[in-house]
Every structure is written in structure tokens, then in C-alpha cells.
């Protein structure tokens, strides 16, 4: 853990942190996938988590909205705070956590229902008070999908292309009006044009949402994110502003990875 260097810490404390991770470890049936990771996520910024396959970056991300609750033998140690509140505290309802922290998955996973119902389902089950129709339109516009689907909202979502499906999943998450959006390799199943589309979208969303994105694409991380965490074998190796981490990393392992010497 001594190799861990957090240069952005001084800068980050001045910023407003929406999520704080403190000595987070995650074990599946006794095998640690994430070891003692600590860093903060700044509000209205894009933070990316990079690292080679199996380094624990997705596992860490899934802890942030308690999606690991459903993996039976996963155990989580340490402290994760959202707006200062420990999200694993006993009195906290995991469903409530996921209202505030939305998630987009690696593979587009629209419900086998209409486009409209895909977006409307989350707000409906959470008793949204306003007009669902307006909310669906607003969310689809935010995900820059509205123009492509406005004439066929009642068609099945499975008829959309992969890139459109992923933007639909983003729209669906945005319809919950979350504070944080977690994205688990959202572009790994998409072609370059769809990827560019989603990256543009992330820039647009930054002013209103905090985004944490897991990616194994370093170019993507350096293009879109303000902060980057580099993980390896479950350890956090370096956390810094993206610009510095990709140009002047302070750790040799990071340098080897971002310069493409391995991984």
C-alpha cells in the first residue's frame, strides 16, 4: 500500500466531495478483489477508474450503489460515504441509495418493453409526482436520443441499435434524477461512433451530475475524465487529476500502464 500516492488529495479536500471511500476492501468468498482503497469523488466532475482486467475496478464501482448486495458471498469492509452518510450503515435502505446513485452497465440491458416504458419504469415504481411523459421526453433529450426515437416511443427497445440501446439505458438512469451516475465500461460493446456519441453526452451531463466511469480504454479516460484512479490487483496505485496522471504519473507502475507497456 506504500506505493499508493494521492497527489490530488490536497486539491480534492478543497473541492466538494460527493462520495468518499475510506479503506474499502471487498472479498468474494474470502478472496480479496479490492484491497484497502481510499479516494474521493468530486461533485460535478468525471472520475474514471482504469486498470487491467480483473483489477477490481468494476467490483469497486458496484459497491458505490450497493449492487454487490446480491452477490451472496461478497463481503465489504471499510467506509463508503455519500453526502457524508455511510451507505452501508444499518439504518440505510439500499433501495434509497440507488435512487440517488444510478448505474449504466457494460452491456446495454434495456427491458424487453417499449422505449417509453423503459424510461418510465424507474420513476413509476418510485412514485414520481410530476408528469411521466414530460420526464421521459426530458430524459431522452438529455441522453441525446429523443430525435431518433420520438416517433416510435411505443416500439420495443430491443429494436434499437447497440449504441441507441446504451443511450436509452443512460436516459433510463437519468429519469431517476440521480446525483451520481456510475458507468461500468459503458462503451466496451459499442462501435467508435457510438462511443464518441456517449463521450460527448458525458461532457454535457457533467454540469448536472457526478459521473464515475470504469473503463479499460485509457484514451477514453484521458479524454473524458477530470480525475483518474489507476488500480492493479485490487490495489489503488495512483489517484490524480487525469491530465497529470496521464502525462506525469508519479508511480512507475502507472507510467508503465498508461504508456502501454503492459495491460
Amino acid at each position: 500500500m506504500s506505493s499508493q500516492s494521492i497527489n490530488a488529495e490536497t486539491a480534492a479536500t478543497e473541492l466538494d466531495n460527493i462520495l468518499e471511500m475510506e479503506n474499502v476492501s471487498v472479498a468474494y468468498a474470502g478472496n480479496y478483489a479490492v484491497k484497502n482503497v481510499s479516494f474521493n469523488v468530486a461533485r460535478n466532475a468525471i472520475t474514471s477508474i482504469i486498470g487491467p482486467s480483473g483489477c477490481g475496478k468494476s467490483t469497486l464501482l458496484r459497491c458505490l450503489n450497493r449492487m454487490n448486495d446480491f452477490i451472496l458471498d461478497a463481503s465489504i469492509e471499510g467506509n463508503i460515504r455519500f453526502e457524508g452518510q455511510d451507505i452501508y450503515a444499518r439504518e440505510v435502505d439500499a433501495v434509497e441509495v440507488r435512487h440517488h446513485i444510478g448505474m449504466v452497465f457494460q452491456k446495454p440491458n434495456p427491458f424487453p418493453k417499449s422505449i417509453f416504458k423503459n424510461v418510465a419504469w424507474g420513476p413509476t415504481v418510485n412514485r414520481y409526482q410530476g408528469s411521466i411523459t414530460e420526464l421521459v421526453e426530458r430524459s431522452l433529450k438529455q441522453a441525446s436520443l429523443w430525435d431518433e426515437v420520438k416517433d416510435r416511443l411505443n416500439d420495443s427497445a430491443l429494436g434499437l441499435s447497440g449504441g441507441q440501446q446504451q443511450r436509452l439505458c443512460i436516459a433510463r438512469a437519468l429519469a431517476m434524477e440521480p446525483n451520481v451516475l456510475l458507468m461500468d465500461e459503458p462503451c466496451s460493446a459499442l462501435d467508435p461512433i457510438s462511443t464518441a456519441h456517449i463521450e460527448d453526452l458525458m461532457f454535457d451531463l457533467k454540469s448536472r451530475y457526478t459521473i464515475v466511469i470504469v473503463t479499460h480504454n485509457m484514451q477514453q479516460a484521458s479524454r473524458v475524465s477530470d480525475y483518474t484512479a489507476f488500480m492493479e490487483m485490487g490495489n489503488l496505485i495512483e489517484f490524480d487529476e487525469s491530465e497529470r496522471l496521464f502525462t506525469r504519473p508519479s508511480n512507475q507502475r502507472t507510467e508503465d500502464y498508461v504508456s502501454g507497456r503492459f495491460g
Partner: peptide, 21 residues
């Protein structure tokens, strides 16, 4: 597929809502 269940859970659905809808 589990991806459907995960999507519903991540949208703030309870387990019962996920199963039912």
C-alpha cells in the same frame, strides 16, 4: 437474464417490483 434484474434493481426497484414487472 440477470442483466434485466440488475437493471431494475439499479433503477431503485425493490426485489418484488423487479420480479413482478
Amino acid at each position: 437474464p440477470d442483466s434485466i434484474r440488475h437493471a431494475a434493481i439499479a433503477l431503485g426497484g425493490t426485489q418484488w417490483q423487479t420480479v413482478w414487472s
